[in-house]
Design a protein around this nucleic acid. Sequence first.
DNA 1: ATAATTTGTCAAGTGTTTTTTACATAAAGA
DNA 2: TCTTTATGTAAAAAACACTTGACAAATTAT
Lengths: 64, 64
Amino acid sequence: MKNLRLKAARAGKDYSQQQLADLCGVSRQTINAIEKGDYNPTINLCMAICKALDKTLDELFWEE
Amino acid sequence: MKNLRLKAARAGKDYSQQQLADLCGVSRQTINAIEKGDYNPTINLCMAICKALDKTLDELFWEE
DNA sequence: ATAATTTGTCAAGTGTTTTTTACATAAAGA
DNA sequence: TCTTTATGTAAAAAACACTTGACAAATTAT
């Protein structure tokens, strides 16, 4: 399922997928795939994303 | 670096590495490696661990 | 003491994340 | 209109998470 919280947080910073990817040191496709939601990133990447967007793991990635 | 918060949370539930591994559907060695800290688990596994231990991602995995 | 459980570690293999390259479409700006 | 930027998607290969099997040291229980 899509990660809309991530998409929203990125929009809140006015970053493109490419810009966020650069900040996190990964490819644009990786960010795209995570937002699209069909896979399972590593915790280190999740933390890099959170720090780039000033969010926490729970805010962007926790699922009930 | 070691994940001592995870080790402590597991101790708080009185689970062995094997028991926690079974609850999370991974091997004992994987849990051991995460506690030892020399790698980078996936977010899905981190969430499974958190749920087994009644903790959140931020409580067990967030690093400043 | 000794048996059973737990933990630490290693090597080889499997599976999946991630990269790279590439192409197509939509939106925005000049 | 023409160009640029942003997004969605795909296939092949590289990188790495995770498994399996195994052995030894340490801990706990009997």
